[in-house]
Write a protein that binds this DNA or RNA. Sequence first.
RNA 1: GCGCCUGUAGCUCAGUUGGAUAGAGCAACGGACUUCUAAUCCGUAGGCCGCAGGUUCGAAUCCUGCUAGGCGCGCCA
Length: 571
Amino acid sequence: MQLSLKEQICQALQHVVDVLLADIDTNKTPAVVLTRPKQKEHGDYAVNIAMPLAGLLKQNPRQVAETILAKVQFPDAVDTADIAGPGFINIKLKAGGETDILKVILEQAEHYGCLDNSNGEAVNLEFVSANPTGPMHVGHGRGAVVGDALANLLTARGYKVHKEYYINDAGNQIGVLANSVWLRMQELQGMDITFPDSAYPGDYIIEIAKDILNTHDFSSFQNMDEHTRLKEIGVLSVDANMAMIRQDLSQIGIAFDQYFSEKTLHNSGKVNQLIEKLEADDLIYTGTLPPPKGKEVIDYKPVEQRLFRTTDFGDDVDRPLQKQDGTATYFAADIAYHSDKFERGFKHMIDIWGADHGGYITRVQAAMKALTGLEKQPEVLLVQMVNLTRNGVPFKMSKRAGTFVTLSEVVEEVGKDAVRFNFMTRRIESQFDFDLEAAKAKDAENPVYYVQYAHARIHAVLRKAEAEGIALAKADDVNTSLLTSDEAAKLIKMLLAYPELLDSAANRREPYRIATYIMQLAAAFHSFYHKNRVIIDDHELMQARLLLLRATAQVIKNALALLGVSAPEKM
RNA sequence: GCGCCUGUAGCUCAGUUGGAUAGAGCAACGGACUUCUAAUCCGUAGGCCGCAGGUUCGAAUCCUGCUAGGCGCGCCA
């Protein structure tokens, strides 16, 4: 494969560095990294390699830089290379040196920025996994959008991504759900019912109850013993909720490769097998845990439990696998689940969890290390909480108070694109104040319209060209070296940076960088647009500018696609 | 008490893994449409990068301590 100009320059420098290092006794090999300086006067690329080298060679950095420049063989496109400041090497390219990228972008189209890697590593990406006890809320939405964008990003960079949703359809919550629905069913039959505090209050419970009554005979439930009845209603209710959740997901354009039921782990005996395996490996013992710190537990009683020696693998305290009544804990099922992923061939797992599960990471990784020997698996990304505001005024979400805001309501109110883009504009580590009015506003405060407008604007120009009977030249016939204005140069630099951006975003699992990038790219375009009229008499220059616009539109479209946001041609 | 995340302009946030003079948007002020979309652009102003030490040629970035906010800390999920 043809090396990019940047790679050629990098290689040329690295060669010199290697030669210099060969003369001295060291095991350090500083790598040459080309950066794009903020200041224009600092050239197109800057290298700081002379600084780390200076220490090793025991010379001053400027001297080292001179030595490097004396020996290096740069490619032809390099115009000048100067030493500046404490020892930076600033490289200037000949005019139009990198404008070939426009032709590359048009040629590669939707693949520009992507790595075609047929041997890509398989990654199991688990996200959302909202409990099947109600509709998705806004906080789930953030994890969903981030997870889906990360899946797209990793896929673009050559990974084989398997998107998975873990359905927590076992455990006490399902009993509570079933009981809540049963109470509503009885109420709908005209019976006088009092609802305990523990029951789920939402209206969707009534809807589920109605649906069950429409399709099933009420008396058949009355005739069941309580255990059977709650089990039956539990299954029906989980199905209803999962149907609702899938609806919520499809509304924001998210689909999973697999929905994995926790219950199947229990029913198939996988959880018990796991516990037996751990027993056999002497990783379980009977013991008593100390009382929890930081909050007062009134009814704390020391109790003997079967404990997993997770402390041997980095955890702070050993963890119970069985409750007092002998049933498996959530933790037991969860490590059975992750073991199952491993057995299905995934050596690399990424989980996206809410911040409230942060304390859970160490124990799962410790367990996985014990079971598979894998380090730091699953890789867990914590998404911080979403605080909803309206016109800057926070309102608390509460199931009980009925001020619960579902994702579906928000998407309906502000639209899929705005929800998705807004959720992507911040790092996942920072808490997100999501303002409903701001997300709805179609003004500059809402970045999604800013970037979509850039795309639509380009198409307006292309439409105008078409209307005037101007045929778009073939990329190879365009003289791109005419694109010499400051704005064009900036825009081209942004386009050049896109593959590197994707690479770094994928490696760091930081899809938000795509959103930040698109905003910068859109700004560079808008700026260009104002200073450089495209449809002009100078035919050659016009074709060059048209090519720049076509390439820009392509990259905006590609990047928005990764975020799952549409790129309209008209607004 | 312990663990994880966060603290950058009045507000919301970036800051390319330690580089040169810390950047955007909003809000404020002043400009730019008989022109390819003004949902836009240009300019002015706004900063002890939470505080204090340390590491080095060089720190918003790395280390230590402190401080403020969020999340979590037995058989809930």
